[in-house]
Design a protein around this nucleic acid. Structure first.
Lengths: 223, 223
DNA sequence: CCATCACCTTGACCTGAATCAAGTCTGGTA
DNA sequence: TACCAGACTTGATTCAGGTCAAGGTGATGG
């Protein structure tokens, strides 16, 4: 969750030691889970490298991926007592862990940090509104199109009108669980987009958006 | 969004004047919109009475209600430049409006307020994860059951095992747009629940949950 | 160079919820 | 008391996407 600006951006150089003092680095191997949904929430995390997926589960195993996080993103902003989601590395990730107690010392020492955290939380809140609309009201085609555009606008700001190379580091299963679809549907729709010359599938993980602006149209239901 | 504790809870009595100074009260009539999705976000709101619905729209008019807010809830936490949602009164509401500039003066004066705001944002974040799971992975029956349970646990903490009277102040259209369904489906499922003696429909807005614990089971997909 | 395994694609078929189309109920008005 | 309008319910039918079932594909190791 949350992007770009590192947690450090609100703290000046010579205070970095204090920060380092309150945190510990950790490495998580591909597919390894490091936050258990419902477990007591003792830590706050910052993703420093690699990628992570966040998800919730239903008792029968149905899964909803609620977000992907990468370098600079915050996890576990909720200062609540238990995690509302599980988290798992996607192809290996490195994290910085801040125990809540230490976090509190930090926010006391650096009041502006609290503001950064709120900012991050509200940015995430805004993204989630959009994702709820996707899940509640968009068709499968629109969902996949939205996903592609979302991916590409995390590289390029502003949707460009010329071909964009895209790399989808997550397996189809994860895309499906993120979009509230099945892997078959995701696969079929990507194939359809290819047949319609909207995209080019160079390899499983490597896709070219041939007509980004048309794909954005589809994403917004304006075919 | 966000419940119970008023914004004032982090501010002591004699400072209330300062707070009052930075805010203005407003009344919104039933069905009147007071936040326009995408409009520049200049204010932060606290619901002081009545109810409000938050939603996002697709260009063709499809609507996703992303939440209902009532007394004590916060709106527009995102300190971003434009609102990520629209908001409209549901049967009349009263609000307290805080222009962002004033809000900033307040957080400087009362640092603990910033923490409250983050807390509120992260609580909302956790709720949204659950709602994404609902929209992405639950069946219509499960969604309606979840909705009923959600409504009743905002009265009673802990799901009780004996009948609960419930009042649904929003029209079926809103329930449908909240759950990502059509009004027909919502209506059919409520009728089915009635036939199965899970609920009793006393009037359009007044429903009794006869077996709350069975309804919770359905809500979690554990029929 | 082939076997294997995990992941992805494609096809045939099915089904849950949407859509389309009548009714019915309620509360307000005269 | 009867009428009306808007909101809700119910039924018949359709269809988007899910499910089930084969194939493909490409990276790894023997």
């Amino acid at each position: 969750m949350g992007r770009r600006l590192s947690i450090c951006s609100s703290i000046d150089d010579c205070d970095l030691a204090i920060l380092a003092n309150e945190s510990s680095r950790m490495t998580v191997a591909d597919g390894r889970s490091f936050i258990e949904e419902g477990a007591p929430a003792n830590d706050f995390f910052v993703v420093t490298g690699g990628r992570v997926k966040l998800f919730t589960l239903l008792p029968d195993g149905r899964r909803q991926i609620t977000g992907f996080a990468e370098g600079g993103d915050f996890l576990g902003l909720a200062a609540s007592t238990s995690y509302a989601f599980g988290a798992e590395a996607l192809g290996g990730a490195t994290l910085c862990r801040f125990p809540h107690a230490g976090m509190q010392r930090l926010t006391e020492r650096f009041p502006s940090l609290e503001h950064r955290l709120r900012e991050e939380a509200s940015r995430e809140l805004a993204l989630m509104q959009a994702r709820m609309t996707l899940l509640g009201r968009k068709t499968a085609r629109e969902r996949v199109a939205t996903f592609l555009i979302e991916r590409c606008s995390r590289l390029d700001r502003a949707g460009p009108s010329h071909p964009v190379e895209l790399d989808l580091p997550m397996p189809r299963t994860d895309i499906a669980d993120y979009l509230g679809l099945t892997i078959e549907t995701v696969s079929r729709i990507l194939s359809a987009f290819k047949k319609e010359k909207l995209i080019n599938i160079r390899s499983i993980t490597h896709i070219t958006l041939l007509t980004p602006e048309r794909i954005s149209m589809i994403a917004e239901g304006m075919e």
